[in-house]
Every structure is written in structure tokens, then in C-alpha cells.
Design a binder for these strands. Structure first.
Lengths: 233, 233
DNA sequence: CGCCAGTTTGACCAAGATCAACGCAAGTGG
DNA sequence: CCACTTGCGTTGATCTTGGTCAAACTGGCG
């Protein structure tokens, strides 16, 4: 049984849940909806602040204006798991259960819009096209999670980190140099490795000239072919 | 990189996709829908037969009348992953994309009802309550997958197999002795371990008096407390 | 300047994969 | 009815990956 403790900085809050409706918002289609219901409230959170925790009611959902949010769960023995990172433009917190099963925390400083779930639901009820769109988005997200299952179940440390980097680069329109907003610990808890292993793999990539690491929070892609090769699957 | 090949018996079909809408059908609520649209076709498949493969169109979805179905994905290097098992009463194949990303195969002999996706969609469009129900079911399933992420990312071999057994027992109304329809290989590909490790863990459970294994395809629960203990999380 | 949080690197260890052999029951064909 | 095959399942010996423990490094910041 592994002992990896959730990293020191975090409060001992328990878990809370938030399946992702990211691509929904990403697609820009939801913006129509958002425009319709003018009931959003803007909120800001600072680094490591909790947006919600397990047990909180699920009566609202959020859309990120700027910053990065991590959706995570703390296990009884202190192990932490990050189910996903949400970036600017993503939506999150559109949950199934009545209570949060995961928690949402600000990775750095974050600004979000908060919307009433009930109002949104009513709006969707009155608009079958919107409902269908939402359904498709959710199915799409479901497929993504199934791919993550594959990642966690079958992939080696190298493949996991390579895949993670590629995800990041794709999010940033394949820019050569990107800012990595989250800590090594966050990355580790996301791909289910220890922080040491993440570091070692990154160092290997650097040594092999696949990436450069100007500073701990930015990565420059040097050889994308090699990286894709390593991520394979 | 692991070498575990998908077990010999299976054709070299590629992957195809099917997020699960299991609880939807489970709940019995969908039966209303099914009753409404009398357009289902009954089909049977024999052991290891393919119901659909990657690339097939997603114009229908299925509900299991009897038997067990595995939804799986084959990686390029031969590694196989089973995303889920669907049992009698479950629905599957209600997919997001246009083409299947996973494949569905009969574990043993299976009888299913096949429904038109388009007709179902139209019906849902005309019934907001149904749409909302479906949405909730999907969110619920999403939560389940997130829990599986945790299983694959963070749990030891013992915890995985224990959890798998508990799942099985719960599906069977906690009967003392259950039939395990799938092969050891299927179990291994579901919990992402090798077949050898699955065997060893089962043997340990047997040795410790937690379960009895009258024959390879049935398991008797002897000490449910101990089993739950081992699954923890 | 020294502290502190986060990162990196190294030495060692254990869980589980790999390789290999054997067991066992269900066909199959003579 | 009995060899022979075939497909799983089980068990053992060994090796690899990645976890654990520990120590050093780095870049802010009071």
C-alpha cells in the first residue's frame, strides 16, 4: 500500500465531487446559455483556496474566467487524487449527486463565474436542442475519462508524463513554450505517480533533449515527435 | 512497458467505444421509454462474439436481456483494457462520437435488445423530464468512472481484486455464492493487473478463508467483513 | 543573510510484471 | 474408451518499475 501523502500545503478537507463539463463551455456553445441567463456571479479565489469541498451543496456550477482549478479527492489514508484540471474557459461543478463528492481548489489565483444549477436546469428543460448538446458534451467527457482510465491502468510513468505534457501543449495551441501552472505534486497526484518519479521522468526528457525546463514552471518543447512517440497508445 | 497480450482467444479487432448508461436501464425508469418506442430488435450473440467494433456507426444502443457484455479497447501493442462489464438489465452503446471508440463483446452467450439511437433521441427531445433523468444518470455514471480512476491509479492488487469481488457480490444482491461469468484474463484486463497477479490474490483470499472457490467460475463469500476491510478506500 | 517551500537527485526496497512450468477439465478423433 | 490436444487456471523463480527514505539544491522573501 502506497504512502504518498497529499502535499503538505493543503488543508485537511475531505473529498467532494465534480464531473467535468469542460468541453461544453470550451465549445463556446454554452455561451448562448450563459448569455440567456444573466444570473452569473463573478468570484475570485487565491492560490490553494477552496472553491467547494465534499459535502457542500451542488446548487451551482462554475465557469473559469481565468486561472486553473483542480478537482480532487482526499482518501482516508491521506493519499490525494486529482481527477482533472480545468483551465480558462472550462466549466466545472455540474454534478450528479446532491452533495459534492470531490472538492475544487484554485491552483493559482482564479476568477470564475458562478451560475445557479436550478435556473440552468430549467433553461435546458425548455430547450431540447440545448439539452441534446449538453448530452453530447457529457458523452464526450465520458469518453475522455475512459481514456484516462487507460492512462492510469495501463501506462508506464514515462507514458503518463509524456501524455500529460502533450495534453498541456495541445491546450495551449501547441505553443513551443508553455507555463505549467500546477506544482510537481499536483502533476504527480494527477497522473498517479510520486513527485519524485515525475521529476525523474522530466529530467530524463530534458537530458534526452525532448524538452527544456527554463524554470520549474515552464517547459519548452524541443522534439514533439519524440514526445508523441513516448506517449504512444 | 508491459507486455501483457490480450488473451489469445480474441480476434485482432481494434477498439470501439461505449460509455455506460447502465444505471439508466437498471433503474427501470428507462423501461417507460422502451415501452413507448416499440422499435427494439432482439439479437443473440455467442461467447466471445463481437457486438460491435471500433469504427462501427453508433446509430444504435443496446439493453441486455441476459448474459454479460464487456466493453473494451485494444492498444496498438496488444495490451487490452476492459472499461466495464455490463450485466443483465444494463444498457450500453449510447455513445458520444459518431464512430465506436470501444468494442463490445459477449462474455458468454448473450441476448440483447437493440434500439435506434435516432428514434430514442427524438423521444427524449419531446420529454424534458426524461432528458433530465438521462442527464442525471449520466452524471451518476460519470461519478462511477471517476471512482474507477481512483481504483486504477491508487489501489494495490489486493484492493483492486477485493473491490471487484464486492462489486460482483453487490450486483448479485449479496448472495453467498456467485457465478463469475468472465475469465481470469477478463478480470485482469478490467482491474489492470496480470492474470497471474489476479490468481495469486484470489489464492491468498482463499488461503485466508475470506472466500472459497468451488470451481474457477464461482466464488463463495466466507468473510465479507474481511473483504470490505481489504477493499477499504 | 538565512529560512522556507518546492524541486531535484541518489540509494535502496517491494509490489507486481515477466517467464516458465505444471495442472486440469473439456473436447476430439481414432 | 482412451490417447491427444487445447484453453484456462495456478504456482514458482526472477527481474523491473516505480515507491520510499534521505539529503542536497534553488529561488524567493522577510
Amino acid at each position: 500500500m502506497y504512502r504518498q501523502l497529499a502535499n503538505s500545503g493543503y488543508r485537511n478537507h475531505v473529498a467532494a465531487m465534480a464531473p467535468r463539463v469542460a468541453s461544453l463551455a470550451e465549445s463556446g456553445q454554452l455561451d448562448a446559455l450563459v448569455a440567456l441567463e444573466r444570473i452569473g456571479t463573478q468570484l475570485s479565489f487565491s492560490r490553494n483556496e477552496e472553491i467547494y469541498t465534499e459535502g457542500d451543496s451542488t446548487e451551482c456550477w462554475y465557469k473559469i474566467i481565468s486561472g486553473t482549478v483542480r478537482i480532487c479527492k482526499l482518501l482516508a489514508d491521506g493519499r490525494r487524487h486529482i481527477t482533472e484540471f480545468c483551465f480558462s474557459g472550462d466549466g466545472f461543478g455540474f454534478d450528479g449527486a446532491r452533495e459534492r463528492v470531490f472538492s475544487a481548489e484554485a491552483v493559482g489565483d482564479v476568477i470564475v463565474m458562478r451560475f445557479s444549477r436550478k435556473a440552468t436546469e430549467q433553461m435546458i428543460d425548455q430547450n431540447p436542442a440545448l439539452a441534446r448538446m449538453l448530452r453530447e458534451t457529457m458523452l464526450h467527457d465520458l469518453t475522455n475519462v475512459y481514456n484516462r482510465l487507460l492512462l492510469l491502468g495501463r501506462m508506464t510513468a514515462t507514458e503518463r508524463v509524456a501524455t500529460f505534457l502533450i495534453e498541456l501543449f495541445e491546450r495551449c495551441d501547441r505553443k513551443k513554450t508553455i507555463v505549467v501552472p500546477m506544482s510537481r505534486n499536483d502533476i504527480a497526484d494527477y497522473v498517479c505517480l510520486t513527485i519524485e518519479t515525475v521529476c525523474r521522468v522530466l529530467s530524463t526528457f530534458k537530458r534526452d533533449g525532448i524538452i527544456a525546463i527554463p524554470n520549474a514552471h515552464s517547459v519548452e518543447l524541443r522534439d514533439s515527435e519524440a514526445l508523441e512517440e513516448l506517449a504512444e497508445a
